[in-house]
Design a protein around this nucleic acid. Structure first.
Length: 686
DNA sequence: GAGCACTGC
């Protein structure tokens, strides 16, 4: 028996089945890679526009105009004195591009050491590296480089390296003290992603062991003191011994006037429409576009269609026309691009967006922001092991981030559709992802890094202990950790490793299916997709699609079949990476041919905790907990006859509690494959 | 009949 980790699946476990010569893949996949319905994964690569008000100035003059320039020497001095510097500065102050260069110029990359900067998103890592390479007049990938998955753009001369958080975590596995680096800059820490928090916990340990290492924690907001105290592991109470300190940099380039409602509003979608129209009427002379934040696609579409009705009327008698545009992740790429295109001179754009416009993309020329005051947040309920999106009030930090979108190149205005008292009552910051997610992937990651006692691990914000325990329980149930909480080490031969790697790769890319919203195209897409659907469920349908794609591998094949070309190409990369890993580990890559049941049993061996059966009432029920469940409309089983027993990859609660990524199984497999988990009696009941 | 946003040796 043995265990191995790949970069894409959190863990791929192979264990032997009791049958002779048959070995199964047991797999456990991290929560968020099951998500689908995402925007074209590479859509934002080319939509990352950042407005540069000083475009005509030389790069050097531009650099010196940035607010961060004034504190350059301060930063360098503080890093001589302290091991950790919490750098607070809002977007636009230049910290992401300038600080690494100051450090380089001050000699922090001497004796071959690297200055590393982590970013939560790939576009940020690549575009910042490209910008800094320009500023230094060097080729991208030499002195200044980047590393994201499947794209290493750096060499042995690289001194400044931008990377995604996942890359740094991976590097810790091979080099636990990060000896290549003289300094690590964690950028956008205020977003408090799962990976940021894990990395901060690990870096705290590394900093104790490597006193020469420096850390810059770069955050836009408030939590500075909390973060400083976290890294201040000094023994005495004297400030002289402090290891961490804070430096604030004055923020954005232009002020934003914030307006509140005098009275709360009943319908914020209607209020967005009314406010946008009011701005448009009253500020005819002040050109500049409007950006409104709503929580989801439905609301965005509703607001846009209401605005369009008014826009037509305005078009007749007004000088300045109004062009309402939607913006959200699942919007087709070409429609997303429209928000970046310059409107005609006689037209003002009103962009109605989800949270995508808060951090992921930057739309130029915005002078007015409308903030509905709410956001959809992913929430994991430990008790029911259910993911849901809850509509929650935004935090003050988010509201400020949204408002800041109005002041990027000239003074702006922000209209908050709530009262000033309501703002004061908002939470200061959104709860870190770690406190509202399934922790099984994180716990596994930590275990793989040698953190045996995760309950005592020093997290920057401790997750609920219930979540940690539940994660441990799941890993134990899957046989991934033993009685002592240590990773097990199972190894076996496989009967269908090839098929399983393909399925795993497909599960990790979002938006494999192109599903047009309506009309003729949506019917065509459905017919095209139906060709691949099988009664065994979604996972085998994915296998079918990939196998069919392999024979052609062309863009036109994908177009004909309404398959997302970029997504499936990425699946190929992931699959290739996994196959290499399997070979490296000396395991056979076996294709089981027509023995589909073997694949189904493999899936069952990995997903057995997530079993549901069809109740006589016509809805499904979980075996654990007897909760009512429904088949998600995007599942291939939605239109087919309802099978008696299914395994699901994820439960998502929206209007109903939905199961996604379904696989049809025989109930006796559960008892056979997971006897410690299921007893025959339990299954025969009901 | 449904979709906040990201990410990985």
């Amino acid at each position: 028996m043995f265990i191995f980790e790949t970069s894409q699946i959190v863990l791929l476990k192979i264990s032997s089945l009791r049958q002779k010569n048959v070995v199964i893949f047991n797999f456990y996949v991290g929560d968020n890679i099951w998500q689908e319905d995402k925007a074209d994964i590479d859509a934002h690569v080319s939509t990352q526009f950042v407005y540069n008000a000083n475009n005509s100035l030389s790069l050097d003059v531009q650099r010196k105009r940035l607010p961060i320039f004034k504190v350059k020497n301060h930063i360098l001095y503080l890093l001589e004195k302290y091991q950790t510097l919490v750098l607070v500065g809002e977007t636009g102050c230049g910290k992401s591009t300038q600080v690494p260069q100051y450090l380089l110029e001050a000699g922090w990359s001497a004796d071959g050491k690297i200055i590393g900067i982590t970013e939560p998103r790939r576009v940020a890592a690549t575009s910042l590296a490209s910008r800094v390479a320009d500023e230094r007049n060097c080729i991208l990938g030499a002195e200044v480089g980047y590393a994201i998955r499947f794209d290493d753009c750096n060499d042995e001369t690289t001194k400044i390296k931008y990377m995604t958080e996942g890359i740094l975590l991976r590097e810790m596995m091979g080099d636990p003290l990060l000896t290549k680096y003289s300094i690590i800059i964690l950028d956008e820490v205020h977003e408090r992603t799962m990976l940021t928090d894990i990395i901060m916990g690990l870096l705290k340990k590394i900093l104790k062991k490597r006193r020469s290492l420096r850390l810059v924690v770069s955050s836009a907001t408030v939590d500075a003191e909390e973060l400083r105290d976290f890294f201040n592991s000094r023994k005495s109470s004297s400030n002289e011994d402090d290891l961490a300190t804070i430096l604030s940099v004055e923020g954005r380039l232009h002020p934003v006037d914030v307006h509140y409602l005098a009275e709360p509003c009943a319908d914020y979608v209607q209020a967005v429409v009314d406010t946008a129209l009011k701005i448009h009427r009253n500020e005819e002379q002040q050109r500049g576009d409007i950006l409104a934040f709503l929580t989801g696609m439905d609301e965005v579409d509703r607001a846009v269609s209401l605005l369009k009705e008014h826009a037509e009327r305005i078009g007749i008698d007004k000088q300045l026309k109004l062009l309402p545009l939607p913006m959200y992740g699942s919007l087709p790429y070409k429609d997303q691009l429209r928000v970046f295109q310059r409107a005609p001179n006689d037209t003002r754009k009103v962009i109605v967006a989800t949270n995508i416009a808060e951090t992921s993309i930057t739309i130029p020329n915005i002078t007015c922001v409308i903030d509905c005051g709410f956001v959809k947040l992913p929430w994991f309920d430990v008790e029911t092991q259910t993911n849901s999106l809850i509509v929650a009030p935004v935090s003050q930090a988010s509201a400020d981030q949204r408002a800041g979108r109005a002041g990027r190149h000239r003074p702006g205005k922000a209209y908050r559709l709530y009262t000033e008292e309501a703002f004061a009552a908002l939470p200061v910051a959104t709860a870190p992802e770690m406190q509202r997610s399934d922790l099984a992937p994180a716990v596994l990651q930590l275990k793989a890094l040698g953190i045996d006692n995760v309950l005592r691990f020093n997290f920057p914000s401790a997750p609920p202990s219930k979540s940690l325990l539940s994660a441990l329980e799941l890993l134990y149930g899957l046989g991934i950790i033993d009685d002592d909480g240590r990773l097990t080490n199972p190894l076996g031969n496989m009967g269908c490793s090839e098929e399983i790697t393909t399925i795993l790769a497909m599960l990790q890319v979002q938006n494999v299916f192109i599903r047009p919203a309506g009309g003729q195209a949506s019917i065509k897409a459905r017919i095209a997709h139906r060709k691949f659907e099988v009664a065994e469920g979604d996972l085998l349908t994915y296998l079918n699609i990939y196998t069919a794609y392999e024979k052609n591998k062309t863009h036109s094949w994908c177009q004909q079949n309404f398959i997302n070309f970029k997504a499936i190409k990425r699946a190929t990369e992931i699959r290739t990476q996994m196959r290499k890993l399997i070979k490296k580990l000396g395991l056979p890559l076996l294709n089981c041919g027509i023995n589909t049941e073997l694949i189904l049993r493999c899936i069952a061996a990995g997903l057995f905790p997530y079993a549901a059966y069809l109740h006589y009432t016509g809805v499904y029920r979980t075996v654990r907990g007897n909760r009512d469940l429904h088949i998600h409309p995007n599942s291939c089983l939605y239109t087919l006859e309802q099978p008696q027993w299914v395994l699901f990859g994820e439960i998502q609660q929206t209007t109903k509690v939905y199961m996604r990524e379904l696989t049809v199984i025989k109930p006796e497999w559960l008892v056979e494959l997971a006897p410690h988990f299921y007893r025959r009696t339990a299954i025969d009941n009901d």
